[in-house]
Design a protein around this nucleic acid. Sequence first.
DNA 1: CACTATTTAATTGCATGCAATTAATATACC
DNA 2: GGTATATTAATTGCATGCAATTAAATAGTG
Lengths: 148, 148
Amino acid sequence: MNKPEEFEITEEALKLDHQLCFALYVSSKEIIKKYKPLLEPYGLTYTGYIALLALWEEDDVTVKDLGERLYLDSGTLTPLLKKLEALGLLDRKRGSDERNVFISLTEKGKTLKKETLHIPRDLICSANIDLENARQLRALLHQFMKKI
Amino acid sequence: MNKPEEFEITEEALKLDHQLCFALYVSSKEIIKKYKPLLEPYGLTYTGYIALLALWEEDDVTVKDLGERLYLDSGTLTPLLKKLEALGLLDRKRGSDERNVFISLTEKGKTLKKETLHIPRDLICSANIDLENARQLRALLHQFMKKI
DNA sequence: CACTATTTAATTGCATGCAATTAATATACC
DNA sequence: GGTATATTAATTGCATGCAATTAAATAGTG
């Protein structure tokens, strides 16, 4: 009882290369892989790096606030932040409302910003990124993120 | 000793919203999250689903071949394929070259393709995806994947 | 004030991903 | 044939991510 034209459409729509999710999934994994050798000298993982990027913009924020900016929940952030604390990069302190934990960078954490300034440029080279392609992608992804 | 114009450039380049990697990382995670409720009725995870998408295009392939198509290595695939085997969706059999393990769909695995045909369309609705935005994104991502 | 609902971080359990190593098999080369 | 090399899956160890639950604290309400 398949109408042939509909079958054709769904058949094509099922192919791996037709899936936007798969292109996003692969692109995300591949670019994260490129960061690893650049971050390893600083003892950072990719997740640690993006947490620091967020904190370098604004720190002394709660775990909840940081989680909203990073799209991560406490199940991921709590152990990550404890590791970054153990590295001496940040402090975790309860606020006057004891439910809140405030994250603030240590001097070491602030200094690391300057030492890693070269990473964005290095990544562009190592991942062979076309800047115009990247600019367009970023714009489309931000549109995508707003609606999803 | 910072040249102000260079400092400004790198400062901007360090912001979370300027990172292509972060936009990819968030978009990928968010779209995968949207798949979960659609896949749960079939007992599938996202990774299991993309493995099946690949196998529905071509099965009776080695783990290595499947890994190249999915951008996954045996460390991820071996346990995943064992789970899909336990669900009765595929078989794993050594080839005449005993280093190779060939993956082939069972009847149940083939049947599941028809039962899940609705998922791509359902996802477009639930993730509120703009088709033109998606088409452009996919094209740019494929360019990106080719070069990285 | 007493009681309930809400908020926040932490914890638990499960499913990835990947790098590095291992084990088994096959190939290449002499 | 015999040995070194290469290939393939599997295993191990580590780092996420997320859903669901828990525990503690606060806010809201009568």
